[in-house]
């Protein structure tokens, strides 16, 4: 066999391997998502049927979720609003607290800045659900039971450490000379923060904002424990209510779930590039 044909065979084999691997990956990734769509497209009576593909696919359950015409969905858009309100507030507060802290640590060079870094590291290393029990009691003491602020507080707490790390990392690429020049011109720290630091941090802000939003969109345990009234619960908690129904309205549940999944997907894909560069920059560039 000639070297050339040997190389060609190698390439063929590699391509075949990649093709196979891709097929496996696609199935692996898509099966649970397909199941969501399959259940949502079924009629209510077909939920327990033994089909693999919906026999008579219908978009009725999406319509039902959208116009809230099933009783367990009667406040679906309200819950969506709550999720959005919590998510956006978490994103905003995480960005605000994270940038202020990282700015102070790395650009104002305060003494004992390392203590803040360590505090953030400590928070980072606490498994999130482990604090659920004390958190419930503490929110009661703060007078925050059944209050979205409680959930916001929890999520901001767990999102800021990460934000601080990324901002510190990203901020290192902004030359300190810029600050010095501004100082000589008489700029105060807030002016440097708003006029120089924040604009240059834009990609990291987008990344962390998206990250915080996704974190809060995923949250169930704390939202479940800390919120109770219909007017305050988020979509995942509302979906949890379905599981205790003996009408098995699971097509509606999945339709609602898919609608709930759309905003974070849209946001992720819209900001994907910034996300990847924001989340994985820093040392990566050498």
């Amino acid at each position: 066999m000639s070297v050339a044909s040997r190389a060609r065979l190698d390439r063929r084999l590699t391509e075949l391997g990649i093709g196979l691997l891709s097929a496996v990956l696609l199935i692996w990734t898509l099966v649970p998502l397909y199941n969501m769509v399959r259940v949502a497209l079924q009629g209510k009576e077909d939920v327990f049927s033994s089909n693999v593909f919906p026999t008579a696919p219908t978009l009725d359950s999406f319509a039902t979720a959208i116009d809230e015409s099933y009783w367990l969905l009667e406040n679906f858009w309200g819950q969506m609003g709550n999720s959005l309100y919590i998510g956006l507030t978490v994103a905003f507060l995480t960005l605000a607290i994270g940038t202020l802290t990282s700015f102070t640590i790395s650009r104002m060079r305060i003494r004992r800045g390392w203590m803040l870094t360590n505090a953030a590291l400590l928070t980072y290393a606490i498994p999130m659900s482990f604090l659920a029990i004390p958190f419930y009691s503490i929110m009661g003491k703060y007078g925050l039971t059944d209050n979205p602020i409680a959930v916001i507080a929890v999520e901001v707490t767990f999102a800021t450490p990460y934000a601080i790390f990324i901002f510190k990392q990203y901020g290192a690429s902004i030359p300190l000379e810029l600050d010095d020049a501004a100082r000589i011109d008489g700029a105060s720290p807030p002016q440097i923060f708003f006029r120089i630091y924040l604009p240059l941090m834009a990609p990291a802000l987008v990344a962390i904002g998206t990250y915080a939003l996704l974190l809060s969109w995923n949250e169930y345990l704390y939202a479940f424990l800390l919120l109770s009234s219909d007017g305050h619960i988020t979509v995942p908690v509302g979906l949890g209510k379905f599981l205790n129904s003996d009408e098995a309205p699971w097509n509606y549940l999945m339709a609602a779930a898919i609608i709930y999944a759309l905003p974070p997907m849209a946001i992720y894909y819209a900001f994907r590039r910034k996300m990847n560069s924001g989340l994985t920059m820093g040392g990566v560039k050498g």
Binding site: P32, N35, M36, W217, P236, L239, L253, A257, A261, P264
Partner: peptide, 11 residues
Amino acid sequence: AVPGIPSFISI
């Protein structure tokens, strides 16, 4: 990118 709870219920 898809929120966890819906995916887990589906699984």
